[in-house]
Design a protein around this nucleic acid. Structure first.
Lengths: 178, 178
DNA sequence: CGATATGTGTTGCTCTACAGATCATCTTAC
DNA sequence: GTAAGATGATCTGTAGAGCAACACATATCG
């Protein structure tokens, strides 16, 4: 059954148009978004990634570092020096959780909140530029579909939380949507 | 250190729901896609990235390494050892371009085509799993919007080609650029 | 109390991205 | 035809980030 025949071109020639490839289009979008948002946020500690962390810190229910890492899909050992740099920049604080003194609750400072509010505007503009082709209703549609896809969370890796379950857990299920 | 205490909520409190954040949902989707496709393609040389390269090799008009790198948004120095590993695996060949002996044309071997045809099926299944929430017409809609967004190509970086222009160029739009 | 699990931090390895230099070749100017 | 610059590929060195393993403090369960 498995034979690598020599005239494969005639047999199972994969007919691909690169613009049809989901992975490619996805990659293009991600690069565009990263370029645009990185440019928009300037010298923020860890670029677009750092911005995402700060967003998660503010959005969540005073999450600890592990929750942040799982939420953003980055390694928890990375979160250590990521938060370190944020603390150095005065954007967040590590607070002790009296209920669990192992955990460090990450909380945004006033400065962090102010910076974030500013950045969010710029990033929103960058997003607008990336989605520039789409009409307003199409953008909303795209965002909506994207949100549903992201929250679907197939959870390929077994030990990892589904993305939106982690969100709901972090939010304490207190932010009903739509 | 400055006395940063937390009456932060009074300031310009950015109210974000993480599920609303475009960057976050995009990141979740990308991770899901990478996990799923990486699992689907198994021990292929460079994972999902390598798969993309092979797709581009087959889809394009016998592109050289630079065209591949620009198309996929990866550095040209990376493409060198990427193609190296593909050659070692017998998936592609470097052919000399008689018209320009500096350039190496990357061509898929029969084995490469056969492997790609197999992989495309698996990756398609992985994509299906990632987009599992959406109904069929919604998937097509999502792909279509994604394609339009990707091909819009805001080209934030100045010296880089727009993505789809690079595609068209590679696909034989032989008109010179600029 | 003891055993195990969890949150965090540290160290070391690896992969990849990126910038710069080098070499070969093509193109253009003279 | 030769010189000078541009282009494609490769190599080198550096930095960022993921990953695994270990260490430490604390929490939980027997």
């Amino acid at each position: 059954m498995m034979g690598v025949m020599s005239n494969a071109a005639t047999a199972v020639s994969p007919q691909v148009s690169p613009q049809e490839d989901f992975g490619w289009t996805l990659g293009v979008l991600v690069r565009n978004y990263q370029n645009a948002s990185n440019e928009a946020i300037g010298e923020f500690p860890h670029g677009a990634r750092g911005y995402q962390v700060l967003v998660a810190v503010v959005s969540g229910e005073q999450p600890n570092q592990l929750a942040l890492a799982q939420h953003l899909g980055i390694d928890r050992t990375v979160m250590t020096y990521l938060v370190d740099d944020f603390v150095k920049a005065g954007l967040v604080e590590r607070q002790l959780n009296p209920a669990d003194r192992r955990a460090r609750i990450v909380v945004a400072t006033d400065a962090g909140l102010a910076v974030l509010a500013d950045l969010q505007q710029r990033v929103a503009e960058a997003e607008g530029a990336v989605l520039g082709t789409l009409a307003d209703d199409e953008r909303e549609l795209f965002r909506s579909l994207l949100r549903r896809v992201a929250c679907h969370a197939p959870v390929a890796t077994e030990h990892e939380l589904g993305a939106c379950e982690a969100v709901e857990q972090m939010l304490g299920d207190s932010a009903p949507r739509q």
